[in-house]
Design a protein around this nucleic acid. Sequence first.
RNA 1: GGGCGUUUAGCUCAGUUGGCUAGAGCAUCUCGUUUACACCGAGAGGGUCGGGGGUUCAAGUCCCUCAACGCCCA
Length: 1046
Amino acid sequence: MYSPADAETDVLARWDEANAFAVEPTTDPDEPTYSIVIPPPNVTAALHLGHALNNTLQDVLTRYHRMRGDRTLWMPGTDHAGIATQTVVEKRLLSQGIKRLDMGREAFVEKTQEWKDEYETVILEQLKALGASCDYDRTRFTMDDVCATAVRHAFFTLFQDGLIYRGKRLVNWDPVTRTALADDEVEMEEVEGHMWYLRYPLADGSGHVVVATTRPETMLGDTGVAVNPNDPQADAVRGKEVLLPIVGRTIPIVEDDYVVMADPEGEAKARIASGFLKVTPAHDPNDWDIGLRHDLEVINVMGPDGGITDKYGWTDVSDEARQFVGMSREDARTAIVAWFEANGLLEKVIDYSHSVGHSYRSHVPIEPWLSDQWYVAVTDDRLRGSALRAQAADQAGEVPEGVTPPGDTPGDGALRFMPPRYARSYHSWHENIRDWCISRQLWWGHQIPVWNRTVSVADASPEITAALDGAGVDQARPVESSWVSAGAAHLVRLVTEDEIEESVCVPPASSLGRLERADTSMDEPQLVAALEADGYVRDPDVLDTWFSSGLWPMSTMGWPWPEDFPETVGLLDSFNPTSLLTTAREIITLWVSRMVMFNRYFMDGQLPFQDVFIHAMIQDGHGQKMSKSLGNGVDPRDIIHTHGADAMRFSLAQMTTDTQDLRMPVDTICPHTGEAFTPEFIITAAGHTVAAPIQQSPAGDGRTMVSLYGVATGQVEPTDDQPLARNTSAKFDVGRNFANKVWNATRFALGSIEADAPAEPVAVADTAFVDRWILSRLAETTATIDNALGEYHFNVYADTLYHFVWNDFCDNYLEAIKPTVRDTPEQQVVLGTVLDAILRLMHPVCPFVTEALWPAVSAARIGTIAGVDLPESPLVVNATWPSIDGAVIDSSAAETFDRAHNLATEIRRLRAQREVKPKQRITIHVDDQVGGLISDAGGMVETLAGVGTVASANEELPQVSSAIAFEGSQVIVSDLVDEVDVGAEAERLDKAIADLEGQIKNLEGRLSNEGYVNNAKPELVQESRDQLVAKQADLEVAQAARAALD
RNA sequence: GGGCGUUUAGCUCAGUUGGCUAGAGCAUCUCGUUUACACCGAGAGGGUCGGGGGUUCAAGUCCCUCAACGCCCA
């Protein structure tokens, strides 16, 4: 039995000792290279099964290309994952009673660093355990010095080029983590809520209007009511004002065709509309736009925690409104609705389900909130346009209007998605893109390298006044100042009518030293000191994690100054663009797009990667995404422990098809007995099917255990009597069995090779029939695998390999050669050769078992075969991929094999039906035609079917026998049993006859159809005719045998 | 609301340009412990390819339509 744990430990040590994954850049531009940068896992937690899948696919390709002789780099690393990591660290500290704000920024970052170190170690160990053949000496982290330099240089360059700006905007605010989020970090969720219809009295006392809202609490910040100008209701209120209840604010009624008119017969929205829309520019993005169009006031009534407050711009708080200040947004909603009801201003309430943006981190509803944030102008043609121009024309078509079409820039039209349909997702996302908010109100991350100060318009210098000439509030302008002479970049903008914000971006020291600048008197620390002496304060915010991830294919290779980090010199030239990015589809916008924009912008149009492979999502047996909170995940470490890394890898690769998400029924492992069983499922309130918190042991002895779901939701705690049950999945058994099969087949084969090596390479033509056949199958298999991997058809690779090894090699070849191999040196050469090639072909997906077997196979091999090139290598990881001459493919051997195998199967079926003991040798009586086939097959039929004697049908036939129809000949089988069971025999033949008659009827029907005979391809028609003849012959044989029984 | 994907054996999935009696693994049933492997071998049973309509000599495959499930975008 193959023991993965022992083999894996040993093999890892050998790879490590040989430094087997290390690679140096090449200076030869013609040398083929292959490179992948790992999608850096977040340092928030250990790797899950999705990572195992993604990294398996990358490793399969990496190992394949390494063996093909490409200079191959797989660059590993991890991501600091700003908001995600900060959230988990804060949670952990809070459980110890420590608050982030109490400990201060520096101490908190230090704590987070400790967490990062811990999980980075776990992750890298997991990658190694998985067999990932990364060049670990090059491991990067998105916040290490190399990456930090890249981030600062990129930020500075974009800032200087006018592609980064600061503005006061409505952002997606997460009130729990208290930071802004980018648009694509917001997840829409359907929420069962209400639509409230509120009466707003007209200021002139002439009645009221009814506004419909899902968010009554924001009414405190209303600064207008809007109506559609085409709405008949508009005439009555044109030019009027409304007296805002509670607040007492007088606000205008404006006309805007954004407003949906009420229409009971219309679309869903019109049916619930009242025709009047309350406008809250500070708390709704659409209202913000309406406010801009009608010059409405912006009144912010909420704080960063989402609660009602007068601290952020709300100045006209009335006595009546005072009671709501300090409430949470949820409480305020209830209280305000109650107020309207109590005052007779609540018209009605209806149930209403609508989608609400939620934070992808904290999962609470997003609050549109007004604040100053930094943006990358990704809508600029230099970024968005470049991302669109990168797309292969046959995948995405034309660029949208307003975008410069592709030209001669390197990288234009070279980006390909696989499966191709994702090219369209990428394309349409860029059509509707908005500027990218990159500032995050966090402590863990790259702090924004900008120093700000505010000056009054009156005190502004002449350059600033000149720069701002004609600029409105919130419009940033570059300014030529002494800071610019000293190497920094300088932006100014009006934050209000009379206040100016100055922002100075300082490049990293290494860039500053290389810049051409008028004033070289200050280095970077001095420049910063000078700024701070002048009243500038560094922006406390950090950058969105994806800003540094977006630079990953460059930063890991030493960009922008590789010479400062000697180990990175040459990497960009050799390995960027990388060959492939594999990732899940949810990352296309967050990450793929940004890497394309950045790499192209900073590297003269060059792509970060040529191909993007989007892999499947792993779901549980009920089609639900695996997640911690549902407790339906499978830990890769558990699978490596129970099945082995190769088993996990093989199974995952085999499940990777173009179209399907992977559905993986999850079983529970009983901690008492170690047995895997299907747990009892319950359905949660949210409609998820999950393992019940407490499960009974399948042993049926009343012992119990708690499920991962139970623990994740805090419903149960594991105890000694009732321990936690881990998950597994029977899906991995295939891989485990396969590794075991190879292990045992190799042990057997090695014991059969003992001859001295023939002096000359063996010529294929001189070998036995089965040898020619298996070599032919080897050549075909290799070609199929090459095609499959070239097209990222991982399941085809795995299935082809499995079929070749298990069926062709083990079931047929090894069985067929058993009687001859020990006395046939040439056959031993073939056996050793095929075995060696199998280990190579299998290595990319099952690196451990192949490496573990490699020394023994290498040592046992004798001789070589002409046309099959398998040079020796101390390790299979660095061995060459099999190179097999096309002439080895022998189609006549393949055909003879198929016929002989069919004959053996017919005989075996008969044996099984008559329950003949395996040891029993039988006798068959055949005509010349079948005799010829048996002779051509060189003993294979006899061996596989347990035939002791092949006699001629012309000789006298035994009394006790059975007949088989085969290719129109009668094969008489005897020595099966002592007596013929006439009933069983008749039943068998009747079934065969019925079967043949069905087929004949089918063929006759087809051939009597004129349309078929006239229209189908002639060779197809001829084939049908031949088949008909053959089946009819078989039928006659079977009928004759049946008649003989009566 | 727009887009994409899926629906094939009890389960998990293959099925390239339409063309042999629709395949595999697991599960089930029968037989077998033949010194590589019971994580095994030999054999068997099991599918009107989600429903309906159409094109065609021929449809799992192409077109239309309906339904269910999943994902993305608004």
